[in-house]
Nucleic acid binder design. Structure first.
Lengths: 222, 222, 222, 222
DNA sequence: TATGAATGAGAGTTCATTCAT
DNA sequence: GATGAATGAACTCTCATTCAT
């Protein structure tokens, strides 16, 4: 009889608090243990409510994840449009800005994005979300690359999509690997390396005035 | 987890057959559905043996995966040493060879590597295996890069570890993304693009005589 | 079961409205889905009130059903006394009147009576109510039958209680089966058949004057 | 991954024993408490196995019931064909035989049939099974009645389907009511009354020589 | 009175693992 | 070695009921 109802939004302050406590608890636990290792009980426990309350606000564990992931996706999407407004001649700076913003977004959400990854291999809708996030970044890059190729500033032999796909993957993966204590770079240094690599890869010369850049040598020590 | 028994190696031909049927079935299923979605039942069923027989040969589902993954790791490790013996002057060709071999290895095992990834976030020993696989590739690259920097053939400002970490991640991730039908590159083209990007990234000039390379322009159309 | 509170009768017009909305909604839903398949949520939803309001008016789901069923029982009881006042000689007409009225009552409440049936098998108080409803009908019949036997108008060999029990069950069950579209009889025809069977069963001759009975032939077509 | 498998039939004696213990336990409990009040745990407990074992043999509680009910249905169907082979002239005896056999079958399975009833109101497949059981009995009766009408031995005004539907319902319902200690008839007496009523209802004269029937008067005392 | 949130016992079900044969 | 049955902890989800506002 009872339908799987969309678990309507909270109507009171208390409800709002509970709901967001569950959201937070869920996110933390998914990040710590992965999706399937986390039980509803664990989430409710950490949120400080009874396990039945979980279902007052979410239809299922999957629904909860979907909502968490949507928030993240929104942030990543918005990170994607950074640097667009810089003037065309500042190509290097644009790439740098885009890299910084993307690196930052991915880094902040690294763990949950990996949870998403693991589900994307199996479930269609998560896969889709995953591709969309990548695609939005690749798109921006492609447009830039094509313009640079037309201006004679980038290697014209590079196929734009594959190129940006590879370079985007580089930044994203780097963000994940970077989490582990193996590397000791601060954000500025990481962005610097990635941008340098990116620019070099597409044949774009770094900005003419290399003098006194504070960031360039610090990573050299690592 | 469980320390029931060491699940001794097969002593008969029949045993050998059964064991490897389970190994194969397990691998296929893990690739198709991921780790946690596959049950012992499913594995036994596909291997054509009964339920309980699984435990004659493996202590647990995890043990099975560990063995599967070890095989893959060995292959990836060996792919890592390719190109080492080329003479120092052929830097571009060495990178190309290394990329081809790594790309090929990762591509062949893409799905199972992703299963490994998803467990590595949570379980220490899988995480370790994962880093070792990466590290072995990064090591080779670093050595090469340092030599090139000493010879004045590569950008001396690049920090070797971070650089190779990023570029290695680029190749590996590309291999995964490449599986999906979005990109339409054959292996040769993919290797070409990746190597071109790699070389450009570290400031290494492509081989002097670029004339008449069959692979270079075909991807340019995409 | 629960003895929370007596759920006092409504003191305001608004209360009266709410209470009867719940009663109506409950009845509809029980009829549509059976007792255990209906949730408090469903009832409140259909009554247009909130979840918790239900308990302002009823102690439990069972209490609600009990009240619904009581109303029905009252109607069935009163249907039972029909035809009593006809003169003794019009035996056939009396039986016919009783059948019509009982058939009508049972038919109108067929679904809820079946809900009652299903609970009566397990819960004593519902069982009791059930028997009382039957008994009241059987009683009337028995009195009539005994008189007819004394007058030599009915088969003296028939044990009155068993006879009326069986014939009463016939009418009641027929009412339930009749709901399904298998049979295509209108009420008049149904009453006619049942009464004919009843009268024949106890050996009572149908009314002497059979001429021009409108109902007799219509069912003959079915 | 794992499919809802049909829970294959037992391959060993132990399996057979367990399975039938569950069947028996389930039947007893359904009869005692109704369907929804019985839990898997209860069934397993009474069968003397762990609750997980239930699912080795049955997919769900419903599956179990379906199997129990199927057995009953088979018995009732076979009870339906009794008396068919008696010679046409022995109409009364045929009806009596049919009634005895049907009454016996329904009586033996009274409780479980009521469980079936309660589910039939809501679930289509159970409803179907229920109608089929009734229909098979009604069919036999109709054929007999039509022949008797043609021979001038039964009231020609009675519509055959409705008549037999009503009379069948009478026997069946009587069987249920009869369970309760209200009535004190042995089987022979019950069959006698029902058959007498049935015969009378359709206008068939009882066997000419009623002298010295042992069963006829004993119930008359009740 | 009415509301919406919280509760928690308990339901059905799954599945890695154990074990007698 | 292989088999098929048994196990029971763990899990997701439901819902009648309570309660603060």
């Amino acid at each position: 009889m009872t339908s799987a109802g969309p678990a309507s939004p909270p109507a009171t302050a208390r409800g709002r608090r509970t709901r967001s406590a569950l959201l937070t608890a869920g996110r933390q636990l998914f990040e710590e243990c992965g999706f399937s290792a986390v039980g509803i009980d664990d989430i409710a426990l950490r949120a400080g409510v009874s396990h039945g309350t979980f279902y007052t606000w979410f239809d299922s564990k999957e629904t909860l994840l979907r909502e968490i992931v949507s928030e993240v996706a929104a942030e990543v999407f918005s990170a994607t449009s950074i640097g667009t407004r810089l003037p065309a001649k500042a190509a290097y700076a644009r790439i740098e800005a885009a890299n910084r913003s993307f690196l930052r977004a991915v880094t902040r959400h690294s763990r949950i994005l990996r949870v998403l990854d693991s589900l994307a291999d199996t479930q269609e809708d998560f896969r889709q979300l995953r591709s969309e996030m990548r695609e939005s970044f690749v798109q921006r890059g492609m447009e830039g690359l094509i313009r640079l190729q037309e201006l004679g500033l980038a290697d014209p032999l590079l196929p734009p999509r594959a190129t940006d796909s590879a370079l985007g993957a580089m930044v994203e993966s780097f963000a994940h690997v970077w989490q582990d204590p193996v590397e000791e770079l601060d954000e500025a240094a990481a962005v610097d390396v990635l941008t340098r690599l990116w620019a070099g890869a597409i044949g774009l010369a770094p900005p003419a005035r290399p003098a006194g850049e504070g960031t360039a040598e610090s990573p050299g020590a690592g």
